[in-house]
């Protein structure tokens, strides 16, 4: 895994779609351009859909890693307001 430093971290384990994405989107909105968000989640569908949705919004997905049987960590860098 590349060494990515995150300015903000959220834990959205236990949430289901679309609230997984909504929490991630609101977190990105509250950050500055160039900052990175680290998202910890346990919803398999969201591990696919959040990176895609973030890219659709114009942000950069730095890394998606399955950290154990049921959990993922996603790093997203905010690219625009």
């Amino acid at each position: 895994m590349p060494d990515v430093k995150a300015e903000k971290k959220i834990d959205i384990r236990g949430l289901i779609c679309p609230y997984t994405f909504i929490k991630a989107k609101l977190a990105v909105e509250s950050m500055h351009v160039g900052e990175t968000l680290e998202i910890l989640l346990d919803n398999a569908e969201a591990s696919n859909s959040i990176p895609k949705s973030m890219e659709d919004l114009g942000h950069a997905v730095m890394n998606v890693e399955k950290v154990n049987e049921r959990e993922w960590v996603i790093f997203v860098r905010k690219e625009k307001e």
């Binding site: 909504i22 989107k25 609101l26």
Partner: peptide, 23 residues
């Protein structure tokens, strides 16, 4: 800051790029 109820109530707005949390 949205409450959990507000996150649910306005979720279909917040998802829209033209609205979001700020809108």
């Amino acid at each position: 800051d949205f409450t959990d109820d507000q996150l649910q109530r306005y979720s279909r707005h917040i998802i829209l790029p033209e609205v979001g949390g700020k809108g």
